[in-house]
């Protein structure tokens, strides 16, 4: 909810409370920084860039944070800002969050995703390869090798392709896990299961996919889903909780049918 909009162009001064941790082995702590002369037009990551330059100039170690496209589509950036994943703006990633969402004099708390399955590598950077392992456990389809398949050989209903695309919009940023009180990866896993399930190409591995991906999600040490929908609220791609219900349906179906 972006209610605190700073309409003026006046530069702001902010107090940052940032999690600093040397590496995965060391113990981290919250450290205070001053962000001076922050333009409201800056993105959140640009603000961090400016703070880092000051830190480097004064001979310190810059704050490590992950980022790549800065267009809100890659899923690399992900920070807990003032206790909410990806900050206060709805349906965006941190890179698309702008400083106009903050007020002069605000204290901004910046933390990495917290989950056993997402160990901190350094400062605000966490290891999300647990997601990659969930994908590789079952997020694939069977395809014929050789020539490129005929474009429209498989008829797909418009609604199905739209629904599949809604689920496939997941960029794997991990905000769902970060926001969930149980650090559950149910929204991520279910979105991946749903996007393949909703298309005919995903049908051959349907039962096996549900069983394998859920098992992998378990093995990574994520929690269980309490159906609160906190994940849906912070998801930059606004993936719905109904995916979780679909995953559970698929899982039950696989269990009952006894298919592998």
């Amino acid at each position: 909810m972006a209610t605190q909009t700073n309409g003026s162009k006046k530069p702001m001064n902010l107090k940052l409370l940032v999690w600093r941790q040397k590496n995965g082995m060391s113990k981290g702590a919250m450290t205070t920084y001053e962000a001076k002369n922050v333009s409201p037009d800056m993105s959140f990551l640009e603000m961090l860039d400016v703070v880092n330059e000051d830190i480097i100039k004064s001979g310190g170690e810059p704050i490590a944070f992950e980022h790549d496209c800065r267009e809100g589509i890659c899923g690399s950036c992900g920070l807990m800002i003032n206790g909410v994943a990806h900050g206060p703006d709805e349906g965006t990633t941190v890179c698309q969050l702008h400083m106009r969402s903050f007020k002069d004099g605000d204290t901004v708390v910046i933390e990495p995703w917290r989950a056993r399955a997402f160990p901190v590598i350094k400062d605000l950077v966490v290891d999300r390869s647990a997601f990659d392992r969930i994908i590789s456990a079952g997020g694939y389809i069977s395809v014929n090798t050789g020539q490129a398949p005929d474009g429209n050989a498989i008829p797909i209903a418009k609604q199905s392709s739209e629904d599949a695309m809604d689920s496939a919009a997941c960029i794997g940023c991990g905000a769902c896990v970060a926001q969930c009180k149980n650090a559950s990866a149910a929204l991520f896993t279910s979105a991946k299961i749903a996007h393949l399930r909703l298309l005919p190409q995903g049908d051959p591995e349907r039962a096996e996919r549900a069983l394998r991906m859920v098992a992998q999600m378990d093995e990574e040490g994520f929690g269980s889903c309490s159906n609160e929908g906190e994940c849906e609220a912070v998801c930059p791609k606004e993936i719905g909780m109904v995916n979780i219900s679909l995953m559970n349906r698929e899982y039950e179906r696989a269990l009952i049918s006894g298919k592998k």
Partner: peptide, 15 residues
């Protein structure tokens, strides 16, 4: 977390 708020403070999509 040092600070944790409800996702509902951000979006009413949370239940």
């Amino acid at each position: 977390y040092h600070t944790k708020k409800w996702g509902r403070s951000k979006s009413k999509r949370s239940k």
